[in-house]
Nucleic acid binder design. Structure first.
Lengths: 329, 329
DNA sequence: TCTAATTGTGGAACCGTTTACACATAAAAC
DNA sequence: GTTTTATGTGTAAACGGTTCCACAATTAGA
């Protein structure tokens, strides 16, 4: 690997001049610039980012921390982050915390030790003390915090929306899946739903589900139909859980959506491919990723950010697990 | 952030001694060791990995390059890699190439510039010249190469297996989805299937599908039933495509599996949640990830590796898109 | 007891960059 | 024709670690 010294020698100048030319800082004569440029070409020189970041104490790396790379919602977020970041010539480093605080802490350390310029954290851990003494900006994604900048979807409204759509389409006994209690986003949806359900004065049950993961989803689904066999509208805590419920409903011979309506949350790519395809409250995952990245980059560049907590709207995606409006059961 | 100099000052020794104590190299008196340890505790010192890797020209980072983070097969691979790597005290840095050679090349550069000790590449790009002049080991995952170490599943056998299972269960007119031509893994499955189908002398059609992505899958599905309405067994190029086909089949009122059997490939988590749940040829994604990471780590540690191209077996996962054996249509 | 080997420590060079500063030259101002 | 000012370049000190080597002190070997 060629170093800046090799380039300097080849071009017949000092390393300082090469560095200046490289970074467009200070004066460099046009002719020397050309000389240096040629030398760089010939040697196929690329500056050593490690040396750079040792001196600068920052790199062009941004760390993205995901809670669970297997939940399709997060790769979608990641894609948004990635696109925005790359447009600004930063590089992305993804870490998967696997819902474990130790792993999260380790990744934050790795990021810090590798001199990232900023972190976007989408983990669901309550304890955010890891992020306290960092010398670079942090944006929380898919999560609300007062202390830190954040980007999230309007879960409360999402919950309300789900209830409204279900009730409007004729559901009379709604079952609400609560989702992980430690997860603020899940609880927002839940609270929104409860709120609306009380306003509309509809009969309802609540079922506590432990997690968002594929494995637990099946178990929850089975339990749900045992406990509340006469429910005619289910609001799932996310699309994975909804898929499991749909599966179980079909297995036990329920008519979807005639006997039972189901609404999910997220709108992951698979929801469309289910049969019947899943009606859901869409979180704009890709856009959320882009927003978070945009916010972080502004902070990195020292620009004033007008709005530190960005709430994005959710939308109802009507598919086939809900009835047509007006066709009330 | 405390530096090694702060620690040295606090402990009343030189930086060289601290470094020796830190890395367990050379002589350090037990008493001094204790002194240093205390100083580290008090200052909450963590060595700067950037400085370390500048001198050592390598870090404890391993780069993982995925072709498409949105395809659920790859996060599963990543989890395997992650677990194995963390067990050996390395850290993972994930990059998403998005099926684009430019992005792949950029990530390889980023990895190189950040002094990773090794790369695991699961991209599907034919041109692997980016990897040629690297000073650290590279393992290819989910791909066969002669020039580089690799870990992959037995796609040829998978293709054969799919045909056998379908025929054994009574399919007479099989449609084969070919999958992306530039993708060796897809073509292996395809070739295996063709081979077996010829051996068994069964009637068949081939449909070319352009990609593995969600968006294209629906389009392909629609086209398939227009072109080959009387097919009674479909071998999809992966589970996503299979899901789309299943969706379309149900939509058009086909009986699954009575009229039409479907077999996917991969066994991604969602396959179980489809209804009817998807029969598929399972690739042991998690294990593949672990194997690749294990192989890479051995190479990093300079250990002799007995087998540079590891082929893992695939298995048929019987679910509900195929009939029970013996119940031949 | 003297020499040799072992143990413990510190100074300084090095990894590949950036940048403060000194210096030289050329152009502009008076 | 001096004095400023602008332009162009190089030297050397950082950044935060690791390691080579020299040296001192202790222990072992004879």
């Amino acid at each position: 690997m060629a170093t800046i010294r090799d380039v300097a020698k080849r071009a017949g100048v000092s390393v300082a001049t090469v560095s200046r030319a490289l970074n467009d800082k200070g004066y460099v004569h046009e002719d020397t610039r050309k000389l240096i440029h040629d030398a760089i070409q010939q040697l196929n020189y690329r500056p050593n980012e490690v040396a750079r970041s040792l001196y600068n104490k920052k790199s062009r790396l941004i760390g993205l921390l995901l809670p669970d790379i297997r939940n399709p919602f997060f790769p979608e977020l990641a894609r948004g982050v990635e696109d925005e970041i790359q447009a600004h010539d930063f590089r992305l480093m993804i870490g998967n915390a696997d819902e474990k605080p130790e792993k999260e802490s380790e990744y934050v350390h790795t990021f810090k030790q590798n001199h990232v310029t900023g972190i976007i954290s989408a983990t669901s851990n309550k304890d955010i003390s890891f992020y306290d003494e960092l010398s670079f900006p942090v944006v929380f994604l898919d999560r609300t915090t007062d202390q830190h900048p954040s980007v999230y979807a309007d879960g409360v409204d999402g919950g309300k929306m789900a209830v409204r759509e279900l009730v409007r389409r004729g559901s009379k006994r709604i079952t609400l899946l609560r989702g992980p209690v430690e997860l603020k986003t899940a609880q927002d949806r839940f609270k929104g739903a409860i709120d609306e359900i009380c306003t509309l004065n509809v009969e309802f049950n609540v079922m506590n589900t432990s997690s968002f993961a594929f494995e637990d989803a099946e178990e929850s689904a089975r339990e749900l139909f045992e406990r509340y066999p006469d429910t005619d509208g289910i609001i799932a805590s996310n699309d994975i859980v909804a898929a499991a419920i749909l599966h179980e409903a079909l297995r036990t011979g329920k008519g979807i959506p005639e006997d039972l309506q189901i609404i999910g949350f997220d709108d992951i790519p698979l929801s469309k491919l289910l049969y019947p395809s899943l009606s859901t409250i869409r979180q704009p995952a890709y856009e959320m990723g882009r927003e978070a990245a945009g916010l972080l980059i502004k902070m990195i560049q020292g620009k004033a950010v007008e709005q530190k907590n960005i709430k994005l709207p959710v939308t109802f995606i009507e598919r086939q697990t809900t009835r047509k409006d007006g066709n009330n059961g």
